[in-house]
Amino acid sequence: MANNTYFKHEGPWSDASKEFLCSDTGSWRTKRPLIDNDNCIYCGFCAIYCPVQCMEQLDNTFVPDLNFCKGCGICAKECPKNAISMILEREFK
């Protein structure tokens, strides 16, 4: 999950080795991408066009990292086989 960092003091520089910021963008999501593995042809368009670059490459499919997926739906729009569908988050609760 995202780790929250609190600022001790202000400064003109930032140090990635000490305080690496990472926001919980998964909580922004209202729609979740679901991948239909039977239709997937492993072209990888979802992974290259994903702005968050959160698609993980597995053996014969791609899986979104739901901790950081913002739910924009670009993967579903760009999929040439329409193998990705966007489902409302509330249906998973």
């Binding site: 066009y49 702005p51 959160c54």
Partner: peptide, 17 residues
Amino acid sequence: AKGVAFCAGCPLELLVR
């Protein structure tokens, strides 16, 4: 970082990555 503060679907985020 995995989660950065760009709007959802912003192609600028894709560009900087």
